[in-house]
Write a protein that binds this DNA or RNA. Structure first.
Lengths: 210, 210
DNA sequence: CGATAAATTGACCGATTGGTAAAAGCTTAC
DNA sequence: GTAAGCTTTTACCAATCGGTCAATTTATCG
């Protein structure tokens, strides 16, 4: 009856397909309207199924939202996790910026889902922010601080450095409409490369690297 | 009957007070939930009046939202407008960053209202973005480009520079929950000054100023 | 004061919200 | 096949949504 508690403990092929389809549709809707602004009917429509059918796979609106956030939070922190204390500051920071920027380009909906959640007070992921996220940032902040102490980069507040990289890279996903409106038809093709070059330069010179 | 079209063309004292109270309450609600996530009942509650009474002053939910956006958009662009082509790059950019950061500190709800609107595709202010905003940015971009050509700052894409300043400064208002979660109790007092110092350093060194 | 206009309210409307009940249709394993 | 369980649908629910209405209360002004 209830798929997630099926006797078999195994998920059917149909289950996997439908849940995937629902999450895909839900990502569209939640990222565009936030949790409260999104409706189950809208998601069901986008997923091409009836509302009761959707609610057969996810019992509540919150359950869909939570599933999306869980899946997203992991991949979202991947670039920061990949930050290597053994690497040299230049390539590490440079590739971190690039990876975050690539995520904004390739997964703008995920970025907006996250932004909506934070913007509205992070009611569903407060614990994840104060727990795992904070721990990871603390760890990487120590790495950056060590680099500064070793004279490899200019001394700076590592937390605000990380915030700045987050802000500037995610800006291109979250505020895309504004970016498009301001840039107009200018450099329609190489926009990503332009942003990457600018941000890498900014942070490299800003940190007195090279 | 309808206050905004009163015979007198003048607004009563009561009208001004109540409209102010409504906009104040609406700012709370819209900035926290976005347009679709906010409800009139909620705003009426927060404003301490009945829903029909609120609708006596603003005919629709959209009217309240639009009034908020109009008022906000003007002040929001003030710092960029104050950007002085005659001034020297260092003090202009430095004070622009500081002013934007002060706005994030002093008017976080306005920042989030704007962020919500952009995030959700800017359905209500698309024209303002493509019109007045773009024009203003184009103008200031020319100034920055001239500074670069004159060798006063390192050559860089002025648009992405402006985007970066927007992103980093507004981040402290829009993503406040995340910033709080990561920083914890650290430097509870001087947080604003820390951010200001970091950002000014970053952009000054990034632009090879001084 | 009295009269006229402005402000406020409770009752209400149709549409939409998140979600449920139950029965019908469909797969799968034996 | 057939029976068991999985999937889907139709019909429906109470609550809430944005908004209206008529009637009442309150402020303003000569």
């Amino acid at each position: 009856m209830i798929p997630r508690a099926a006797k078999t403990q195994r998920r059917t092929r149909i289950q996997e397909e439908k849940e995937e389809k629902i999450l895909e549709a839900a990502l569209d809707v939640f990222s565009a309207y936030g949790f409260r602004g999104a409706t189950i009917d809208q998601i069901a429509d986008a997923a091409g199924m009836s509302k009761p059918n959707l609610l057969y796979y996810f019992r509540t609106k919150e359950a869909i939202h939570r599933a999306l956030l869980d899946r997203m939070l992991f991949t979202w922190l991947e670039p920061l996790r990949a930050f290597d204390p053994q690497g040299n500051p230049e390539s590490e920071i440079r590739s971190y910026i690039r990876r975050k920027l690539e995520m904004s380009r390739d997964f703008p909906r995920e970025s907006r889902l996250f932004a909506n959640e934070i913007l509205q007070g992070a009611p569903h992921i407060e614990d994840e922010l104060k727990g795992p996220l904070k721990a990871l940032v603390d760890e990487k902040a120590q790495v950056i601080r060590a680099w500064a102490k070793a004279g490899k980069i200019a001394p700076c507040d590592p937390y605000h450095l990380i915030f700045s990289i987050w802000a500037t890279t995610q800006h291109y996903a979250d505020f895309d409409v504004q970016v498009q409106a301001v840039l107009g038809d200018k450099a329609g093709g190489g926009r990503f490369e332009d942003a990457a070059r600018f941000l890498e330069d900014l942070f490299m010179h800003g940190l007195a690297i090279k």
